[in-house]
Nucleic acid binder design. Sequence first.
DNA 1: GCTGTTTCATACTAATTGGTATTTTTTATG
DNA 2: CATAAAAAATACCAATTAGTATGAAACAGC
Lengths: 196, 196
Amino acid sequence: MSKAANTRLTILQKAFELIYSKGYQTTSIDDIIATTQVTKGAFYYHFKTKDEMGVAIIEEILRPTMLESFIKPVENSANPIEDFYNMISYLLLDDPFLQVKYGCPVGNLTQEMTPWNNQFSKALTELVDQWKITIEKAVANAQKSGLIRKDVNGEQVAYFIMSGYWGIRNFGKLQDNNSCYIVYLKEFRNYLNSLK
Amino acid sequence: MSKAANTRLTILQKAFELIYSKGYQTTSIDDIIATTQVTKGAFYYHFKTKDEMGVAIIEEILRPTMLESFIKPVENSANPIEDFYNMISYLLLDDPFLQVKYGCPVGNLTQEMTPWNNQFSKALTELVDQWKITIEKAVANAQKSGLIRKDVNGEQVAYFIMSGYWGIRNFGKLQDNNSCYIVYLKEFRNYLNSLK
DNA sequence: GCTGTTTCATACTAATTGGTATTTTTTATG
DNA sequence: CATAAAAAATACCAATTAGTATGAAACAGC
């Protein structure tokens, strides 16, 4: 990787960490250049505005990790019920990229940016839609193989799973404690079994 | 109500509307005094800091409406399954206090303020805990009267319902469209029936 | 109607914000 | 090594931020 591409990536990564922990609005350019040791000139050479950098974070940092942790685990799944559970369980309890007290990066940005920045909304919607479609496909496959009842509606299940995940992440954040995740996962297991 | 108490309430109400639609950080004191037509002197007479006003909003604006829409509908409920559904349905589709594109005020503040303001977290936790306890009690009652299975865990159900609500509100916000609420409610109905 | 307290108005400040203009350094290519 | 372009460094700016200092009305009880 060229040196220039490297500073660009450093900015994105460090800025993401700051934004994930502090929020987008409260992370200033000065914050970013202070922690990255990159000068303002370099920053604005790589990004026209702060918002352009924000969108780049979604597309170049969040999207790949989302693909790895949210899409791959259930893509072409032979046993979606089990894989849904494992995916959510991993995300809540094990994923080293995510921290209890900071919640879900995608959820955070949605809450903060959606009402007044269309570019953010669009980029976030793409991520979320991809997850939704993956879940729907997995449900359809499981219905073919008889692991999930035929009268189950894939879109409903997708929304239900995703919203539950987003919501409980908010609780973890509020309480700064993952014990609510344990309780949640038990009921999530019950719900998944009800689809059989 | 005295004139002074009235200006105080006006500040809280208008500030809440601004914060609900724009976010806490991006709502400035100048914004608030501009829309309330109250001077800065008056504002700082009633509130020592912006954060003190924020906490007051949670306790004096959010708490009462929460009690009305989140607690009362399921308190002492004779048929919790039905009342759970009606409560969530009302909140998502009918409550005039809430708007699709702005999400859930409590959820918004949690996301935005929790990582770096303890007072907010504490005030929000109180609200949320009250809701949780109410749901748990309703489940216990329904188990006594045979409307919900004895092996169902009230705390798990409470977390599951609340997190689903918070999460789907995030989707509505992202899409600025309540059609996801319709889909969600169908699956929510299925889930509730699985408790019988 | 006098007086003290409550309530509000005005003018200000120091710090921070995102962004720009300009210059300097680094790098690739002939 | 010369040169042009890419990349980064420096110094600045206008606007906005939460909060303050100080004084003026409004209002109470006597």
